[in-house]
Design a protein around this nucleic acid. Structure first.
Length: 521
RNA sequence: CGGGGCGUAGCGCAGCUUGGCUAGCGCGCUUGGUUCGGGACCAAGAGGUCGCGGGUUCAAAUCCCGCCGCCCCGACCA
């Protein structure tokens, strides 16, 4: 894998490898983010600045997700950033689970002593305020007032917000001290309804991941040890990154009556009896942007699925003199307007004093799916040059050959009509490519030795293994093999070769189905 | 909190061991010209409390002491 930086680079640095070598993966990842102009570290410890291009991708994700939440009957609301410490402790396991990563506000005033501004010791709060690591507790404190009768249920609310988790080590988009997310918090009259909601929202996430982000995911259930603090059941979608590691991309929790009990939220059912409310919560975060990068990008930079690309098409004009420039720009403007009329987002890069080649590299690094080059030759022939961001790999192909395949020429009208279908093709090819990769990096393993060999190999990825161990044994496994059980997949998620019952690779106990073991982020 | 590394122009770095010339290089930036179908070139320019504080010295980016900040590895990570 090459490590390209902006500026002059030898052409030989390009190579067709889609899968960077594992040891350089972290560097490659940061490089894609930097060159793609997505985000950077802030001067504030562990925090991330999301730059306009990165944020534009997040906004597109938000819109797609929000549409789906609305379509399933949810509405948006907003709750406070600060949670009184006593609220957080109302659900014991929940409090314990987040205790080690809380930012706490203890004072509310500064004062100046000898010209130095310090925290005023006299302004200490009676009760410390925790900056929300997640909002279950403060939302349920409010729900108590909103719910009296079964007629008030279900309560289906989502919040778009920032949360803070004081993580020891951070990684842009994947794990930062503060991050943006959405968290849904629903209240239901029956367990059945809440359990259905938990599954429904996981389906929404999976639909988004595969059909919008083009990231294939496995739907499943976390083991008790990996469950959300305070949940009875945690469902998740797991993706595989190009280094073979698993990434948890979204979770949906069935909370039972835990939070209702902690906050004393009861309702009168149809039979006139008071009962605790059943709850769910579910969330996805800006981590999805990280997933997008690590699933699709290559050595030339970011690769975006058209449905999440802030810019669909970039037009690069080519000319040698002012006369040509005028003509080419006129045509480029027309092409831009015609594409915009189709509802596409189009950028005409008419910057002077920049070589066309430099523009190609820049827009590729930013992941723009389609580039149109317009020069004097195109004006003559009445054609357009269409270049796609990527093509599916052909074994043994050289970089030159691949570059050639990315490029096509077509009569003007035909080319313009062909952009939308091309974007659809790219969208589906990305999903297809990621699926093929995941398949290639998945193995059925039937013993600890096989697991060890697989995980140590350059093709390491998802290991499908039988498991019937205890929680303690799971932790021991995790330590010894640097591997965890990512999820217990739903029956319909298991590939044919991994189906059926067997015996646990550690204990030899009977196991009804295989689980996914993998290294994880 | 333990182990390692780094703070010099917007970014990336050299210089420090062995103190001394006007603190340098690449990228980027500004201006002018020539260029432009895969990362242009020439010329002229702008840009610096050398992380902070103290000490040694005729003289400190360089040596000594203290502090601050950042990064990597580990513990941590619904």
């Amino acid at each position: 894998m090459s490590q390209q930086t902006p500026g002059k680079q030898p052409a030989a640095a390009d190579n067709a490898s889609v899968t960077p070598r594992a040891q350089d993966y972290g560097q490659w990842y940061l490089d894609v983010i930097k060159r793609g102009d997505l985000a950077e570290h802030s001067a504030v410890r562990g925090c991330m600045v999301i730059k306009p291009h990165g944020y534009a991708i997040w906004e597109k994700m938000q819109r797609e997700l929000d549409d789906r939440f609305k379509a399933t009957g949810h509405v948006n609301a907003y709750f406070p950033l600060f949670i009184p410490l006593s609220y957080l402790t109302r659900e014991e396991q929940h409090a314990a689970g987040f205790a080690k990563e809380c930012a706490v506000v203890t004072h509310h005033r500064l004062k100046s002593i000898n010209g130095e501004v310090v925290v005023d010791p006299d302004s200490k709060l009676e009760e410390p305020l925790v900056v929300r690591p997640t909002s279950e507790t403060i939302i349920w404190a409010q729900y108590k007032n909103w719910i009296q009768s079964y007629r008030d249920l279900p309560l289906l609310i989502n919040q778009w917000a920032n949360v803070v988790r004081w993580e020891m080590r951070t990684r842009l988009f994947l794990r930062t001290a503060e991050f943006l997310w959405q968290e849904g918090h629903t209240a239901h009259a029956t367990e059945k309804e809440a359990v259905e909601e938990t599954a429904r929202m996981l389906d929404v996430y999976a639909d988004f991941a595969e059909n919008i982000a083009a990231v294939p995911v496995i739907k499943g259930r976390k083991t008790p040890g990996e469950r959300f603090a305070g949940a009875l059941d945690t469902l998740c979608i797991e993706g595989m990154m190009q280094d073979g590691k698993a990434l948890q991309m979204g979770t949906s929790h069935y909370l039972g009556q835990n939070f209702a009990k902690g906050n004393d939220v009861m309702f009168l059912n149809k039979e006139g009896q008071r009962e605790y409310v059943y709850a769910t919560s579910w969330g996805v975060s800006t981590r999805l942007v990280g997933a997008l990068i690590m699933t699709h990008s290559d050595d030339n930079g970011l690769v975006l699925p058209p449905k999440l690309a802030p810019i669909h098409v970039v037009i690069v004009p080519i000319f040698k003199n002012d006369a040509e420039k005028a003509k080419v720009l006129e045509e480029a403007g027309k092409v831009r307007d015609e594409l915009k009329a189709q509802g596409l987002t189009v950028k005409l890069d008419d910057r002077d004093a920049m070589m066309p080649g430099a523009k190609y590299y820049e827009w590729e690094a930013k992941g723009v799916p389609v580039r149109i080059e317009i020069g004097p030759k195109d004006l003559e022939k009445g054609s357009l040059c269409i270049v796609r961001r990527f093509v599916l790999e052909v074994p043994g192909e050289t970089e030159q050959e691949q570059r050639k395949r990315k490029k096509s020429f077509a009569p003007r009208a035909e080319a313009i009509a062909g952009i939308k279908p091309l974007l659809d093709t790219l969208q589906s090819q990305l999903l297809e490519r990621a699926r093929a990769f995941r398949t290639r990096r998945s193995r059925v393993v039937n013993s600890l030795a096989e697991l060890e060999t697989f995980l140590a190999s350059p093709d390491a990825g998802f290991a499908w293994a039988h498991w019937a161990g205890t929680h303690d044994q799971e932790e021991e496994m995790a330590k010894r093999y640097e591997t965890s059980i990512r999820c217990i997949p739903f029956a319909d998620q298991i590939p044919a070769e991994a189906q059926g019952a067997g015996t646990c690779i550690l204990t030899g106990q009977p196991s009804a189905q295989r689980v996914i073991m993998a290294r994880a982020y």
